[in-house]
């Protein structure tokens, strides 16, 4: 503080400018790559324009694009699938399993038996597999004719004909969620592990002196300490899952029928299959708006309480 005060005004002004200078590269890059295109996105949503038109060409149609999105009988189904299966199921599973695995890997016996390194590497393995590859590996495993799972089921006589997991109403969502969670779980585990490392051993010792068992100390020490990191990770993976496109698109393309359509696949097909960029942009804006509200509520409730 004395340092800033001594050289007087110009230094103080320089110091006041410092955070802006530090932020400049980030802000400039994000503005150019996202903010400007995002404004263009708004323009698109108000025009009738195909992917073949030059930049800035198109007829103004007002809110017609939004109306047609909301009138589309597919929209409620996509929205429900997006919220229930992507934004809720995959997120809840990842938070629960991630927490469980992080706690499990933290157990002292793994270190004593010198298997921690191996176990940790295996748990993090799917993270190193690109999503396209993860999808391919699972499609192969679950292939309706030659996949290992069906071969086993057929040989044991459990089923008469192979189950086409990605075209069967009962199995398709659990299968998609399985691929999604398998690939995206490690990141959650590693974040929670970092959080766990930050909890001091004294807290646990104090608790065990007070006679708390493992479950109690998890409830009263681990969870409250992890709360901020759970909150941040929860927000990021919910947004990511809500906008996610690749898992549904590569496994089922929205099928069977329209059973696994989500908003992101509906956006893509509207924009690039139906050649209706404006309609796609309208879906994108509705999605962003929804997430914006969600994030604001989330930040105001969950994050704030954890923060201060």
């Amino acid at each position: 503080m004395t340092l800033a005060a001594a050289p007087g005004r110009s230094a103080r002004r320089r110091r006041a400018a410092t955070p802006y200078v530090l932020l400049a590269p980030t802000v400039v890059m994000l503005t150019i790559l996202f903010a400007v295109p995002a404004v263009y996105n708004v323009w698109l949503a108000l025009h009738k324009v195909t992917p073949y038109d030059a930049l800035g060409e198109g007829d103004y149609v007002g809110v017609a694009n939004f109306e047609s999105v909301l009138a589309n009988p597919l929209t409620p189904l996509s929205a429900r699938n997006t919220v229930v299966w992507l934004a809720f199921a995959t997120v809840a599973l990842r938070l629960v399993l991630g927490l469980g695995l992080a706690v499990l890997l933290q157990h002292s016996v793994l270190r004593r038996m010198r298997v921690l390194g191996v176990a940790r590497t295996i748990v993090l393995l799917p993270w190193m597999v690109p999503p396209t590859v993860a999808v391919a590996a699972w499609k192969w495993l679950l292939d309706g004719r030659t996949g290992l799972v069906n071969k086993i089921l057929l040989q044991t006589g459990a089923i008469p004909e192979g189950i086409p997991f990605f075209a069967d109403l009962t199995w398709v969502w659990p299968s998609i969620v399985a691929v999604f969670v398998w690939r995206e779980l490690p990141f959650v585990v590693i974040s929670f592990m970092a959080g766990l490392q930050a909890i001091s051993a004294e807290q646990y010792e104090a608790a065990s002196i007070d006679g708390a068992d493992g479950w109690r100390s998890f409830w009263h020490i681990t969870l409250p300490n992890l709360r901020p990191i759970i909150a941040v990770i929860g927000l990021f993976i919910t947004i990511g899952a809500f906008n996610n496109f690749i898992y549904v698109w590569l496994t089922t393309g929205g099928g069977p029928g329209t059973f696994t359509q989500v908003l992101a696949t509906q956006l893509f097909t509207t924009a690039f299959v139906d050649n209706h960029l404006g309609g796609g942009a309208a879906i994108g804006l509705l999605m962003s708006g929804f997430m914006l509200v969600f994030a604001a509520v989330y930040l105001l409730t969950v994050l704030r309480r954890g923060d201060d």
């Binding site: 994000l30 903010a35 295109p37 996105n41 947004i239 796609g280 999605m287 994030a295």
Partner: peptide
């Protein structure tokens, strides 16, 4: 944080 909210494809 908000820039994360936009689906990339359309941009």
């Amino acid at each position: 944080l908000a820039v994360q909210l936009f689906p990339f494809v359309i941009l």
